[in-house]
Amino acid sequence: MTETMIPQSNLPFDELIIREYLLDNPDFFNRYPELLLAMRLPHLDRGAVSLVERRQELLRQRVAQLEEEITSLLAMAARNEKIFVFNTELSFKLLDCVNLESLKEVLADSLKEQFHFTHVRLISVLEADVEMKAIWEQRLRKQYYFGRLTQQEAKRLFGSEVGSVALVKLADDMPVIFAVASQDAAHFHPDMDNTLLEQLRRLLAHMLAKL
């Protein structure tokens, strides 16, 4: 004989009312501690367990999750500190540059050494250069572009195919592209943070206006 499923509407009580009552009265089981051991909950690996055991398991899982989150935050903080120190040192080096060639050299050498980028370039966009103007207008409508390029675009910007790129428009009235390329196709992506590049963009725009 099969059991007949009881429709939700025919239950002798409203489960939501019980749920809300327990949430509003967290000391309920303190007043009735015998219920903690009397209540049994299904468990995939251990059969039925008491409410206390189930709560302890959930707390252990929550502690493990928090430990993972803390470890991730500490690793992120360490990376951010490393980037901050690098950016500060690079800024002082760039401010010491007396001409455009030395600025390009310091910029490229520093970024390649720190992040293992394959290409770092400052590229002027000339009116007569149709391909470069198309990149300027299409890829840099929002000032930044992170991701992949077509083979033709990559060869025009870097002279070879690349994995992924970061393109930065220094300023609307300064037709210069700050272009960085990585061999890793997933290194630069649309959702990445642009804090470091924004700081470099502002400094480079200031330096190029002076040089």
Rank of each mutant, 00 (worst) to 15 (best):
F92H: 14
F92K: 14
K93Y: 13
K93S: 15
L95K: 15
L95C: 15
D96A: 15
D96Q: 14
C97N: 08
C97S: 14
V98S: 08
V98G: 11
N99H: 09
L100R: 14
L100F: 13
E101H: 06
S102N: 08
L103C: 13
L103S: 00
K104Y: 03
E105D: 09
E105P: 02
E105G: 01
A108D: 15
A108R: 13
D109R: 05
D109V: 05
S110Y: 06
L111A: 03
L111T: 09
K112V: 10
K112P: 05
E113I: 02
E113C: 02
Q114K: 12
F115D: 08
F115P: 07
F117H: 11
F117Q: 07
T118S: 14
H119W: 02
H119Y: 13
V120F: 12
V120I: 09
V120A: 11
R121K: 15
R121T: 15
L122R: 07
S124H: 13
S124N: 11
V125Y: 00
V125F: 05
L126E: 06
L126A: 08
L126H: 11
L126Y: 03
A128F: 11
D129P: 10
V130W: 10
V130F: 09
V130T: 11
E131R: 04
M132G: 03
M132V: 03
M132Y: 05
K133G: 01
K133V: 02
K133S: 04
K133N: 04
K133F: 00
A134S: 10
E137K: 15
Q138I: 12
Q138E: 12
Q138C: 10
R139I: 02
R139Q: 01
R139Y: 04
R139A: 00
L140R: 04
R141A: 08
R141W: 07
Q143S: 13
Q143F: 15
Y144I: 00
Y145N: 04
F146K: 10
F146V: 13
F146A: 09
F146Y: 10
F146P: 09
G147P: 12
G147N: 06
G147K: 02
R148W: 09
R148F: 03
L149A: 03
T150W: 03
Q151P: 11
Q151T: 05
Q152D: 00
Q152Y: 05
E153C: 12
E153D: 13
A154C: 11
A154H: 08
A154G: 15
K155Y: 01
K155P: 03
K155E: 06
K155H: 11
R156P: 00
R156N: 01
L157N: 06
F158N: 05
G159N: 05
G159M: 05
S160R: 15
S160E: 14
E161I: 07
G163S: 11
G163L: 03
G163A: 09
